[in-house]
Amino acid sequence: MRNLSERISLKFVLFVGLAILLTYVPFIGNYVRIVNTLVHETGHALIALIGGDVHQISLFMNTEGVTYTSHSSWVGGFFTGGAGYVASSLMAFLAFWLISRKRYNILIVILVGLILLNVVLWVRNFYGIFWLLSFGAGFLLLLFKGSSTLVQNCLLLIASILLVESVSSAFTIQMLSFIQPHSAGDATGLARSTVFIPVQAWGVILFAQSLLFVWFGFKKGIYRID
């Protein structure tokens, strides 16, 4: 128990709990959850650029997103298909790592950079543009006008949402891979790419990697927030 308290603070638990509750609030819940969708779809896009093209990204009010890409090889399509959930897990880990080291401005710059990248290059649907501009404006206000306490608390909430969503969305895909294997999103796409590896296996792998990042964060003590 002592070892647990040395690696996870009460503040971390409170903010993760708040993030879970917030995701169930009508409208607001979906609005804040799209930050994970942004990271997920950007992960697909960045990997697709290695030997391929990104045509467009759409972000939707129901928290779903889609990235339209093309690839010159099977390898490019395979890695692009698996990049979304890994990007979400990695971003959640990076967010808490930066917060634990009080590198708040760096985290804001990274998030604003992702938003600008999508506004300029990829997102073209109305709600996607609205979300990017409104969320980006909030981050800029934090960067230039926010007090240190407000900045830390807001970023902790964003990081907690990223963490909760990275795990819960991967869990959902795992469940869908067993219940609706032909409609399990990235797991279905990966199964089609690999043929001999079933969709259920990919569902388990995608969920397992999200838990691995959480475990790694626990081992590194990044959830011990002062």
Results as ranks from 00 to 15, higher is better:
Ile129His: 11
Ile108Arg: 06
Ile47Asp: 09
Arg33Cys: 15
Thr149Ala: 06
Gln56Lys: 08
Ile222Lys: 00
Glu41Ala: 05
Ile158Trp: 07
Ile161Trp: 09
Leu206Asn: 04
Ile179Asn: 07
Leu111Thr: 12
Phe218Ser: 03
Val199His: 01
Leu116Glu: 15
Leu111Asn: 06
Leu18Val: 14
His44Asn: 10
Phe79Gln: 00
Val123Asp: 06
Val167Arg: 05
Val75Cys: 03
Ser177Ile: 01
Phe216Val: 10
Trp202Met: 02
Ser168Ile: 08
Trp97Gly: 01
Tyr31Trp: 15
Leu38Met: 05
Gln152Trp: 04
Gly113Glu: 13
Gly65Ser: 13
Thr42Val: 04
Arg101His: 15
Leu14His: 11
Ala48Val: 07
Thr42Ser: 10
Leu121Phe: 14
Pro26Tyr: 14
His44Met: 08
Phe126Arg: 11
His71Ala: 11
Phe178Ser: 05
Leu90Gly: 02
Ile179Ser: 09
Ala191Ser: 15
Gly81Asn: 02
Leu116Arg: 09
Thr23Tyr: 13
Asn62Trp: 10
Asn36Ser: 15
Ser89Trp: 01
Ser100Val: 02
Val109Arg: 05
Ile106His: 12
Leu157Trp: 13
Asn153Arg: 12
Val164Lys: 07
Phe207Ile: 03
Ser134Cys: 13
Leu94Trp: 02
Phe27His: 07
Leu22Ile: 15
Ser72Cys: 02
Lys219Ile: 08
Ile99Gln: 03
Gln209Pro: 06
Phe178Arg: 02
Asn105Gln: 11
Pro26Asn: 11
Ile50Gln: 12
Gln152Pro: 01
Leu133Pro: 14
Gly203Cys: 11
Gly65Pro: 14
Trp131Asn: 15
Phe171Arg: 02
Ile173Leu: 14
Ile20Arg: 09
Ile205Gln: 00
Gln56Tyr: 00
Ala137Leu: 15
Phe96Gly: 00
Gly189Ile: 01
Tyr223Phe: 13
Arg124Cys: 01
Leu143Phe: 15
Thr69Gly: 04
Leu163Glu: 06
Gly52Cys: 08
Ile106Trp: 14
Phe12Ile: 10
Met91Leu: 04
Val123Arg: 10
Glu64Tyr: 13
Tyr223Leu: 06
Ser169Tyr: 10
Gly113Met: 12
Ile108Asn: 04
Ser100Cys: 03
Val151Tyr: 00
Val25His: 09
Asp53Lys: 10
Met1Cys: 08
Trp97Thr: 00
Leu190Arg: 03
Ile161Phe: 10
His55Tyr: 05
Gly52Lys: 07
Leu21Gly: 10
Asp186Met: 01
Gly52Gln: 07
Ser148Arg: 09
Leu211Ser: 12
Asn36Asp: 15
Thr23Asn: 14
Val195Ile: 14
Phe139Trp: 14
Ala92Ser: 04
Leu211Gln: 09
Leu10Cys: 06
Ser193Pro: 01
Ser166Ala: 15
Met61Cys: 00
Gln209Cys: 07
Pro198Asp: 06
Ala201Arg: 01
Ala92Cys: 01
Leu18Thr: 13
Leu14Trp: 14
Val66Gln: 08
Arg101Glu: 11
Ile161Asn: 10
Leu212Tyr: 12
Met91Gln: 01
Leu176Asn: 06
Gly84Pro: 14
Ile106Lys: 14
Phe207Gln: 06
Pro181Gly: 04
Leu59Ser: 05
Gln209Asn: 07
Phe126Gly: 04
Lys219Gln: 12
